[in-house]
Design a protein around this nucleic acid. Structure first.
Lengths: 226, 226
DNA sequence: AGTAACTGTAACAGAAATGTTACAATTTAA
DNA sequence: TTAAATTGTAACATTTCTGTTACAGTTACT
């Protein structure tokens, strides 16, 4: 288990495919999580992964559509390998437009799977060193749940970290208080809106002279702005 | 790996296959136990074996799934040979070759069975002799299940050792309590989260003035930090 | 400008998480 | 079978985190 152990999320609605992926890639030293549907995947903390392996044909939300949301909505540029039974020209083109990094046709050989996985990760590993650099000013390390600014840790608490990394992942996007409450605190917890304000204030304080980068849009909510 | 006679656990829901395995491998000088289901196998002391032979297709819990649990939940890295039925074998599995593991297709020849068994055990036994130096401060000897610090043994108990070596192998990575419980204690054991805290405290104590290197991230879990 | 709504933050109170100890229960070794 | 070692848990101490309030400052709007 070297420091560079890669995390992979496999998403497929076929249980047996997930098992094969998980078992074989784990054996190769990858850290593999699975999701049985696009909906499930969207509930997970997607930012932690180094690679998605994604079946194109799934129930309600197709693999293409999910890839689109991951890239556009969450602004996550993690590489994606598509699993596909259809081997048509159209699919390949659509996939590459979405930034697919590779295709594997089912049924696939385990050897091929591992080879392509390694290839994709090797390709991107030079660009991204496991710490997500989401802004010029801040480095978010999901594994360590840490944020660094100019080499110094920000030392955020759990709630603070979760708000900060969410806002930072969506620069410019305004999050209303009730959305932050729902996503960070959870829907069943009953706390005042003001709690958000205070938490934001605490983050700003720890950000020092960069505190102004967490902005408020009066009447709407908070957002990160570089 | 224990010296001398090798212990093998064969797991299959077909009685006659178990008989064939037991008879032939015993004749070759191996010490063979059997389990008629994954559930039965999970009740056994899995750590004592040098090799598992495991049918992929079994009742409730598939071979893949069982293998996964053995590896992840029990944190046992003992090699596994899979049995697969010839007619379900396809491209997915062709070319499968991962470290110490192997495949044998049913129906198999006794000659092939013995050859692969010997091969796997030989391969693994060469990976001996590894005192892993994982940090500047600590030397972990996986074979002896010992940790040394400045020449002096830390004298960790089993649980303590397993937590310590896991954290040390993943410096900086935060392990939530429930993940530690799953990986060290196993998923079916019901113990409090606080058990982890106490075990950590005991390790820290034995680490003396280096105890602070086992850190806690409030709300998340524990990690090793140099 | 005036005023009502909105936001920022300090200060306090309370809750939650973590560290530590003591002791009981269980396992292991002799 | 004993005794020793290991493990689990309750209880308490301590630290850290969170929520609310109060009030000052800001913004939006007429």
């Amino acid at each position: 288990m070297t420091p560079g152990r890669k995390k992979i999320l496999a998403i497929d609605d076929e249980e047996d495919i997930l098992e094969i992926l998980q078992f074989n890639l784990s054996a190769e030293g990858f850290d593999v999580d699975t999701a049985i549907s696009a909906e499930d995947a969207l509930e997970m903390n997607l930012r932690q992964y180094d690679l998605f392996i994604l079946d194109i044909m799934m129930g309600k939300i197709s693999g293409f559509h999910l890839a689109d949301r991951i890239r556009k909505e969450f602004n996550i540029q993690t590489p994606i390998i598509f699993l596909t039974a259809r081997d048509t020209e159209n699919d390949r083109i659509t996939g590459f437009n979405l930034g697919a990094d590779d295709y594997i046709s089912k049924p696939f050989s385990v050897k091929e799977l591992i080879a392509r996985t390694r290839a994709v990760l090797r390709r991107v590993s030079h660009e991204n060193d496991k710490t997500d650099t989401l802004s010029d000013e801040f480095i978010v390390n999901e594994e360590k749940k840490r944020v660094e600014s100019e080499g110094a840790p920000l030392d955020l608490t759990k709630k603070e970290y979760e708000i900060f990394s969410l806002l930072l992942s969506n620069p410019g996007k305004i999050f209303p208080r009730n959305e932050l409450l729902a996503r960070i605190w959870g829907n069943d917890v009953i706390v005042t809106d003001r709690t958000v304000d205070v938490t934001i204030a605490r983050i700003r304080k720890k950000m020092g002279d960069k505190g102004h980068m967490l902005k408020n849009k009066s009447g709407y909510g908070y957002y990160f702005d570089e």
